[in-house]
């Protein structure tokens, strides 16, 4: 079997399992799983930049929030139906990421991390500043009637699960195609050795900018879909915490692997879910896991699989 066939089967298999799960999961976990799939989509977007291009952003929450508010604000204030509102969310993410990318990519390494952090913080504060429209930290709810489109009701649990799976599967297969394409291979080359990639004649800036925009738009997609499926938009999704979480998911699941973001998001979601039953200080667990991963398991779960089981894991 060729490497390509193996890769396609593995990822289609994951999608099939998630499809089947929906018939057996109890209601509570059923809802959680839909949420995990949307968050995993966000993580996949993050991973395209961090795991495949080697750029560590500390500000992806602004892209997630751009999608979320691009969708939710047009529905709430302009009375748009979900399909154009979703598009508005995607577009907001694309424009914002192009803008941020064009500026932030003039810096490298630690400065890039701080610049993205600062832009994201500015975006978060902007949401608070326009509290009249965004309702700030408190956020606002999208009513069920506002979310129905083409006879589909995203507030129905089964529909919601399918929509989440549809978005997750689409982004997963898109990512698989992307990282195996010529463009994706150049991104990997940049991650491995930027100097050498440039001296092979590749335009580093253009490729990095492309990666930021694709990554930002995928993150925005997750944000917009989150608003649609769960009917809520709030400033906390733009906060620092939501920039750190995708980093944690990707590090845990394995940076630069396609299934890593999903594994990481799933584990972290349940870890926080269980810990928050015992203490309100559940973010301590997040912190401890981040430290432990950096110290003891840089490759994450996906990296271990790649090292021990299948070197060709995309």
């Amino acid at each position: 079997m060729t490497e390509t066939a193996k890769a396609v089967i593995l990822h289609l298999g994951l999608i099939a399992v998630l499809f089947a799960l929906q018939f057996v999961l109890p209601a509570y976990h059923h809802g959680n799983m839909a949420r995990v799939m949307v968050l995993a989509t966000y993580a996949m977007g993050y991973n395209l930049l961090f795991g495949y291009t080697g750029l560590l952003s500390l500000g992806h929450a602004m892209f997630f929030a751009a999608g979320m508010y691009g969708m939710a604000l047009t529905v709430r204030h302009l009375g748009w139906t979900p399909p154009p509102a979703l598009l508005a969310g995607l577009l907001s993410g694309a424009v914002l990421s192009a803008l941020v990318g064009a500026l932030a990519l003039r810096t490298v390494g630690v400065a890039f991390m701080i610049v993205t952090l600062m832009f994201s913080q500015a975006a978060y504060l902007t949401i608070l500043y326009f509290t009249t429209w965004t309702r700030g930290e408190e956020g606002f709810v999208l009513q069920q009637v506002q979310r129905v489109f083409w006879g589909i009701d995203p507030s129905d649990p089964t529909t919601r699960y399918f929509l989440a799976l549809l978005v997750f599967a689409t982004c997963l297969m898109l990512s698989l195609w992307l990282v195996r394409s010529g463009f994706g291979k150049v991104l990997i080359a940049i991650r491995e050795n930027e100097d050498r990639a440039q001296m092979l004649g590749y335009d580093i800036f253009a490729h990095k900018l492309g990666a930021v925009v694709i990554s930002g738009t995928m993150s925005a997609t997750a944000g917009a879909v989150y608003a649609l499926l769960f009917g809520y938009a709030g400033a906390s999704f733009a906060g620092v915490q939501y920039s750190i979480l995708p980093l944690l998911w990707v590090l845990l699941g394995g940076a630069g692997t396609l299934i890593g973001p999903f594994i990481g998001a799933l584990f972290t979601f349940y870890l926080i879910d269980i810990t928050s039953g015992y203490t309100s200080a559940y973010m301590a667990v997040v912190g401890a896991v981040l430290i432990a991963l950096t110290l003891f398991a840089r490759q994450g779960i996906g990296g271990e699989i790649r090292a021990r089981v299948w070197r060709g894991l995309p």
Partner: peptide, 22 residues
């Protein structure tokens, strides 16, 4: 290592903050 140091100090941030909360 610059990048890993930032990740680790973010972890430290949450641990200190949340332990104080507890």
């Amino acid at each position: 290592d610059p990048e890993r140091t930032i990740v680790v100090t973010i972890g430290l941030l949450y641990v200190i903050q949340q332990v104080v909360l507890m």
